[in-house]
Write a protein that binds this DNA or RNA. Structure first.
Lengths: 103, 103
DNA sequence: CGTGTAAGGAATTCTGACACG
DNA sequence: CGTGTAAGGAATTCTGACACG
């Protein structure tokens, strides 16, 4: 989970080189809240390899004509699904516990 | 082999933050040829996560009192061992091939 | 030998804005 | 809407050197 893939240490210049996207595009995605790099104390953006993967996916979707708010929505939906799963699992846990108590 | 771990994209500032070592130390290791980051066209050093791991190991050895030339030697030896293994494997391959031919 | 530091310069990044469509 | 660009400033990094031990 928290391996190097999640470590935010890459500057926008390197991300631009790796992805082939312009720095403008990468900053724009952040503006639209599709990615959230961390910052150094000086304000320089730092990205993780996970961020880079997200950026590539986002750019593909944009190329397909999907507007940024839709892309953001998809990500949010995905998170909501996860939360839902967690809720469900917690509920199941409670049910199981209650069941065992009554056996 | 060539995953993100090998991707040289991290600036010295981030490496310093991650490892807790000073930029001076990190540059010194390069001077002693213990690591070899790539460079941007402008000359800025770019490290990979593998480089970072190496840097940490190197600093530990230095802390133990091992001189840099010894550390470099160890790395070179390791590479030599690998080459040796490859040579051996190639030799075995030839032997096996020759054996099959004669069966 | 390994590392700190001040020095001056160059490369990198930042923001807000204007432009196009 | 998504992206290019020129603008001015600030943060980051670079090298070579002096210092200590």
């Amino acid at each position: 989970m928290s391996s190097f893939k999640e470590t935010k240490a890459i500057t926008i210049g390197a991300v631009s080189e790796i992805t082939g996207l312009s720095e403008r595009q990468i900053r724009y995605y952040e503006d639209k809240e599709l990615i959230s790099p961390s910052r150094t104390s000086g304000g320089t953006r730092k990205y993780s390899f996970n961020d880079i993967e997200k950026i590539v996916e986002v750019s593909k979707k944009i190329k397909k004509g999907i507007p940024t708010f839709k892309i953001k929505q998809e990500t949010t939906d995905r998170i909501t699904e996860k939360s839902q799963n967690i809720k469900e699992r917690m509920l199941m846990g409670q049910i199981n516990a209650a069941f065992k108590r009554n056996v």
